[in-house]
Design a protein around this nucleic acid. Structure first.
Length: 185
DNA sequence: ATTGGGATCGTCT
DNA sequence: GACGATCCCAATA
């Protein structure tokens, strides 16, 4: 008998990003028929010079300041999208960046969006996972706790994680706000 | 296995 | 007008 698969609700996300981030490790992101296990995340908060919300709300980052559990998808480097899930109280400007996902189902769609890549490398980076799952600015603001196509579920996997400092940023590099799933034996 | 440079454009200064 | 929460390929070892 297997553990029940339950969707993560508002309560899960309406906590501090530093608490939500480690709990997201080993949860499953579902986008339509495709899904994958979240194996790397980073937390970003408004008291954090590396965060998009550090200088206050703008039209781009508004979702981060909205209610918890909404997708914040932004475009960067002229060619990549990155996806976050807003956390904390409304008005707070914080969230968790999804950095890497291991594909589980709907592999055909994922492979089609990342041709020529081995399955391991379908979503092993923040830009890559958006490409694989087809996430872009149109998905910005979607409520992951109620949306029919995008959701995050708990399938009972143990959230064993390891912490490090964040990468790919210039400021705030000292904060140990990056979590990775322990490599499974 | 690791390193370094180039691509490309929306957003904010 | 500059830059970025990045990715990919080519070149080295």
């Amino acid at each position: 008998m297997r553990a029940p698969v339950t969707r993560l609700g508002r309560r899960f996300f309406a906590r501090d990003a530093l608490d939500v981030a480690p709990d997201l490790i080993n949860k499953v992101l579902v986008v339509g028929a495709s899904s994958g296990r979240i194996v790397e995340v980073e937390a970003y908060r408004s008291d954090d010079p590396a965060s998009h919300t550090f200088r206050g709300m703008t039209s781009r980052n508004a979702t981060m300041f909205g209610p918890a559990g909404h997708l914040y998808v932004y475009f960067t480097y002229g060619m990549h999208h990155c996806a976050n899930i807003s956390t904390g109280a409304t008005g707070d400007g914080q969230g968790v960046l999804l950095r890497a996902i291991v594909a589980l189902t709907g592999l055909d769609a994922l492979r089609a969006r990342r041709p020529g890549r081995p399955d391991r490398q379908l979503a092993d980076g923040p830009g890559k996972l958006c490409q694989a799952f087809g996430l872009d600015r149109r998905h910005d603001g979607l409520d992951v706790t109620t949306d029919p196509v995008v959701r995050v579920v708990d399938d009972g996997a143990v959230p064993a994680s390891r912490v490090t400092t964040r990468i790919g940023i210039r400021l705030g590099t000292d904060r140990p706000w990056r979590w990775l799933a322990e490599p499974t034996a």
